[in-house]
Design a protein around this nucleic acid. Sequence first.
RNA 1: CGGGAGAUGUCAGAGUGGUCGAAUGUGCCGGUUUUGAAAACCGGUGAGGGUCACACCUCCGGGAGUUCGAAUCUCCCUCUCCCGGCCA
Length: 414
Amino acid sequence: MIDLKYLQNNFDEASARLQKKGVDVSTLENLQNLFASLKEANATLEASKAEQNTMSKLFGQYKRGGKDIAALKAKVDANKERMAPLQEKARVAEEALYSVALAMPNFPDDTVPEGADEDDNVELRKVLEPKTFSFKPKEHWELSEINGWIDFERGVKLAKSRFSVLRGEASRLERALINFFLDTNAQKGFIEHSVPFMNNSAMLQGTGQLPKFEDDLYKIEGEDLYLIPTAEVPLTNLYNDEILAEKDLPVLMTGYTPCFRKEAGSAGRDTRGIIRQHQFNKVEMVAIAHPDKSGEVFEMMVKNASDILTALGLPHRVVELCYGDLGFSAATTIDLEVWLPGQNQYREISSISNTRDFQARRAKIRFKEGKKNKFVHTLNGSALAVGRTIVAIMENYQNEDGSIEIPEVLKKYM
RNA sequence: CGGGAGAUGUCAGAGUGGUCGAAUGUGCCGGUUUUGAAAACCGGUGAGGGUCACACCUCCGGGAGUUCGAAUCUCCCUCUCCCGGCCA
């Protein structure tokens, strides 16, 4: 959640930043008014409560002293009656404020490039040259057919479209990748976690998926549980409503989980192959950092993900997202896009974001600095998306006959 | 799923209607003492809101209720532990 006090006190600056993320001024003015109304309603209510408390204490003294309490009781009752509507007003004001505030995206960093959509993202650098093929490289679904790696039809039979089954060598490759990613992350200091694949609504709100993006999530019927869309949710929320010691920062975590997304609004996009599935595997990095240090942690995470791609011999580029392409919770995001020779284009394989204190406010993750409790910064990033790495290996390591080499670093895992 | 017990501050654990945001111990921070450390002693130490700072308001698992007044009484829910059943 955004800092409402900051919005209140620096409205022009704050609204300019949010407008770049597509929020219009009237919404922000409304938010500002709702915040002011809530403060006013609370002030009135609290004054009334204070009065009530004072009289109640007197009441006790009167009774012990054997004094007549009739007059006092009348006063107390009258005040109580006056308090009821104030209470209701404050409750309504709070509800109104949070319904708007929780739907407000994060402030983008000042360094985020201008732009409306992914075409305006800025390429920072390319790593590794795409190799030239002496034949026309095939797309991964063609290669899958030759090698019998992915069973699309039976995946659909078991579930529905956008589900698939990995078979034989492909399935072993997936397992090898997960282990390789986890081991590499561990070497960089990320502690491995194995977490629940379902989280409750409070956690989803903590990281920003709820309440606004409920339609993208799979909900368990009859329970307050959702299938996680990314391990960012459970890993970040491990510290939900906790206060960390400053010396324990940064907390570096990694974990493998399947991810479940409805992909609502993606109809017609990437319908062939396993680029966009309702269920996919991912190894995630999450960091909880001191606000002064989150920038360095962010760079370290980008480098780690990029190094993994390099170790796999996969050409990629590092891209900084522009305002328009930035996600809801992110203040700044760098995507890693891997080269797919079959598709003849770069495709996202990792997305690393610094949410600053946005998720920390929602999830109440703080640290103790001296006597004060301050919000931490939270960061997350894929290292890496497993399914898309399989696609990248298939397309980059293919031979003319359609057979696929296994990258050297993975051989000991297979 | 059935039976029983419970949920309080970092943790442990008192508190059964007012003077309780909450004893005591422990942990942590600071100090005294010490060549240094330990021990001992002294002081500080929950969270959120509000304020320039106070005042003040809220929070004893969550929600509703009784009462002038609830950690304490009533109801519902959730969770934890023990016993039994079932089971990877």
